[in-house]
């Protein structure tokens, strides 16, 4: 939680802690209902309430993209959304990508093949941005389009070149399937 979220209750010397609301949503294919504080960030809800810690928090002000998830199929920064706003939504996080048997999906595999991660902290956010891009763009993108697609995700380790190679490989292996 950052100072931005403190900002929401600046003049609250006393906060209504009993103030909980109910949300119903579908996370990674599982329907659920939870009682939460209205101020709870979606990223914190996923990580702390549901234990889905694959979604990482790098900046909590909407720039780094590490917290990217899919909400109704669109990529969204979960640090910029309140959990209550996800009421009735379908959410997908990085934990949903590999198959039940544990095998990696095309883009995950391409990341491993191309050394597209070092510390791996940014990786879930990249995977989710790319997942959404690939769903919406079936045609092999140009280098410029690939860069555009990941321009909202920061990686401090790799210098991006191997992530770009991974996306290219993911497209070609998808197309050859």
């Amino acid at each position: 939680m950052s100072v931005f979220s403190i900002g929401m209750n600046v003049n609250a010397d006393r906060i209504e802690q009993q103030n909980v609301v109910s949300v119903a949503l579908n996370v990674n294919g599982e329907k659920m209902e939870r009682q939460i504080e209205p101020r709870l960030l979606l990223s914190d809800f996923l990580r702390d309430d549901l234990g889905l810690t694959g979604t990482h928090v790098g900046c909590e002000h909407g720039v780094c993209g590490a917290c990217t998830i899919l909400v109704n199929g669109e990529s969204v920064r979960s640090c910029l959304m309140l959990a209550v706003q996800a009421d009735g939504c379908e959410i997908k996080t990085v934990e949903s990508l590999s198959s039940k048997d544990g095998s990696l999906n095309t883009i995950q595999q391409a990341f491993a093949n191309n050394h597209a991660l070092q510390c791996g902290f940014c990786t879930p956010g990249f995977l989710m941005s790319i997942e959404s891009y690939m769903k919406n763009n079936s045609k092999q993108p140009s280098d410029e389009e690939i860069k555009e697609c990941i321009s909202g995700n920061l990686c401090r380790c790799t210098g991006y070149s191997n992530i770009i190679s991974a996306i290219k490989e993911a497209y070609s292996s998808k197309n050859s399937q």
């Binding site: 889905l52 810690t53 694959g54 979604t55 996080t93 990085v94 934990e95 990508l97 590999s98 544990g102 990696l104 995950q108 990341f111 491993a112 991660l117 510390c119 791996g120 990786t123 879930p124 995977l127």
Partner: peptide, 8 residues
């Protein structure tokens, strides 16, 4: 890579 790619 495996753990880092799967969120584990």
């Amino acid at each position: 890579d495996y753990r880092l790619l799967t969120g584990t």
